[in-house]
Amino acid sequence: MRPILYSFRRCPYAMRARLALVSAGIETELREILLRDKAPEFLEASPKGTVPVIVAKDTVIEESLDIMDWALAQNDPEGWLNFPPEGRALIAECDGPFKTALDRYKYQNRHQSDAELERQNASVFLRKLDAQLGKKPYLYGDHPTLPDMATVTFVRQFANTDRAWFDTQDWHNLRRWLDAFTESERFAHIMGKYPKWQAGDPVTVFA
C-alpha cells in the first residue's frame, strides 16, 4: 500500500518533501490540501494541520526534513546524503533565522515588521550561499545534495517576493543555482497542479 502524502503545491516545505520522494523513487498517494479548508481526514492524521505529512502504515511523519530523511534512507540513488556534517547546520540556518526573516519580509503586514530590515537580515544567509556556490556548481560539490534541495525552495520564495530587486543584487552564483533548479524538469514535475482532495476522490499517484 502506498504511503499517503498530504501536500500543498506552493508550500516550500511540501515542495522539498516532494523533491526527496521523487529522488528516492517512492510512489505516494497525493492528497492536495487547501490550507483554508482542511480535510477532516488530514486533521485526524495530523492535528497540527500543516503540510507536508506522510502517513505510512502506522507511522505519521509531520516535518518536511524528516520526510526527506525518511525517503532518502530507503533509497538514495542520486547521492543526496553524501555531504559533509556542516550541511546540517546550513539547513538549520535556513529553517531558523533565514525563514524567520523571510516570513517577516514577505508578510510584513501580518507581522507588522520592517520589510527592508528583514530583507537585509535574510540576505546575510543568501550571501553565504552565494560565496559557497562560487566554489562548485552546488553547495557541496558537482551535484545537488540534501542541503541544496532543502534550502532552494525557500530561496525561490524569497526571490519571488520581489524578483526585480533580487535580480539586481550581486549574487550571481546564487541566481545561477536557483535558475538551474527552477528551469529543471524535476521542478516542473513536482509543481504539477492537482485539485483539492476530498474523501471519495480517485487516487492520485505521485512518483
Rank of each mutant, 00 (worst) to 15 (best):
M1H: 09
M1R: 12
L5D: 01
Y13V: 01
M15L: 14
A17E: 04
L21M: 11
S23D: 14
I26A: 07
I26C: 07
I26V: 15
D37K: 15
K38V: 05
F42A: 03
E44W: 06
A45F: 06
S46F: 14
P47Q: 08
G49V: 12
T50M: 12
P52I: 03
A56Y: 12
I61R: 03
L65R: 02
D66P: 04
I67R: 02
A73E: 15
P77F: 00
E78H: 14
W80P: 00
L81F: 03
L81A: 09
N82T: 13
F83E: 02
F83I: 12
P85T: 06
A89P: 02
L90F: 08
A92H: 10
E93V: 04
G96F: 09
T100S: 11
D103I: 04
Y105V: 02
Y105I: 04
Y105P: 00
Y107V: 05
N109D: 15
N109V: 08
Q112E: 13
Q112L: 08
A115I: 07
E116Y: 05
E116V: 13
R119I: 01
Q120I: 10
K128L: 15
A131V: 11
Q132N: 12
Q132D: 10
Y138G: 01
L139N: 03
G141K: 01
D142N: 15
R156L: 15
Q157G: 07
A159K: 06
A159G: 00
D167R: 11
L174S: 09
R176T: 15
L178F: 00
D179K: 09
T182A: 04
E185P: 08
I190K: 01
K193C: 07
K196V: 15
G200I: 06
G200D: 11
